[in-house]
Design a binder for these strands. Structure first.
Length: 111
DNA sequence: AAAGTGACGCATT
DNA sequence: TAATGCGCCACTT
């Protein structure tokens, strides 16, 4: 259980204001790693701290992380993505607008 | 230590 | 919401 990177990632994600989302790439950029997008998402899946609103983190297209469509997939099925429905509802509750069932308005990104 | 892995990003097909 | 391949960086075994 290292720290460093994860800590930084969590901090950035935790700083995302309510009603906004951030992309892995942007977070990575903030950490000084323009190509570290993967690592950002990785920390989240590896650590999935319930204090970190992973659901506010989307990919560069504004799409949410792959939910694998159902809780049957033990791979993730975490509180972060309890299900596309759940996640969408959650983000909408915070003021994030969806352009599709899986896409949020990138205009709502922190950048 | 080396290889494998991965919730991405971008170019190409 | 194409799919595939390559690159990047950190973590695990």
């Amino acid at each position: 259980m290292k720290k460093n990177f994860k800590e930084q990632v969590f901090e950035k994600v935790g700083k995302i204001p309510r009603g906004k989302v951030a992309t892995y790439g942007q977070i990575a950029l903030m950490l000084g790693k323009p190509r570290g997008a993967r690592e950002v998402g990785w920390m989240l899946h590896s650590n999935d701290d319930h204090n970190v609103p992973c659901h506010r983190v989307v990919d560069r297209n504004g799409r949410l992380a792959p939910n694998f469509g159902g809780p049957s997939l033990k791979s993730f099925g975490r509180q972060a993505f309890d299900g596309a429905k759940e996640q969408k509802r959650r983000l909408e509750a915070e003021g994030v607008k969806f352009i599709d069932n899986m896409h949020v308005e990138l205009k709502t990104s922190i950048l």
